[in-house]
Amino acid sequence: MNTIIGRITADAQVKKVSEGREVVTFTIAQNDRYRAKGAEGVTESVNYFNCSYWLGTGVAQHLKKGMLVEANGRIGLDIWNDAKGEARGALTLHVQTLQLHSKG
């Protein structure tokens, strides 16, 4: 299990998938700040996690842009080639537990 704490980038959506099942999808942006060894300044970076929550769609109405959340689940990596043949990737989180920390 991995824990991601960050802000939701857009309101969550409920999507229908095969056999009538539904999934809640949303993206979490996680900010990171660190000072590299020997560097004078602080480096800032953002990681985006595409999240899927399969345990009920009722939570979608509460997941709004800007909200601070804590999500626990399994991290994965989706890799594909785009239309130009260049390799692309995205971090995914298959959410098992979700805690809401603030309003958006």
Rank of each mutant, 00 (worst) to 15 (best):
I8T: 02
T9P: 12
A10M: 09
D11F: 02
A12G: 07
A12C: 06
K16T: 15
E19G: 07
R21N: 14
R21P: 13
R21T: 14
V23M: 07
V24A: 03
T25W: 05
I28H: 00
I28E: 10
Q30K: 12
D32C: 05
Y34I: 02
Y34N: 02
A39M: 08
E40K: 06
V42E: 15
E44C: 00
S45K: 06
N47Q: 14
Y48L: 14
N50D: 15
C51H: 00
C51Y: 01
S52R: 12
T57A: 06
T57Q: 07
G58M: 07
A60N: 01
A60L: 01
K64G: 08
E70L: 09
E70H: 05
A71S: 08
A71L: 07
G73S: 06
I75K: 00
I75H: 07
G76S: 12
D78R: 04
W80V: 11
N81I: 06
K84N: 15
K84G: 11
R88G: 04
R88S: 08
A90F: 03
L91C: 06
T92Y: 00
V95M: 04
T97I: 10
T97L: 05
L98M: 14
Q99R: 12
L100D: 08
H101C: 08
S102R: 03
K103Q: 15
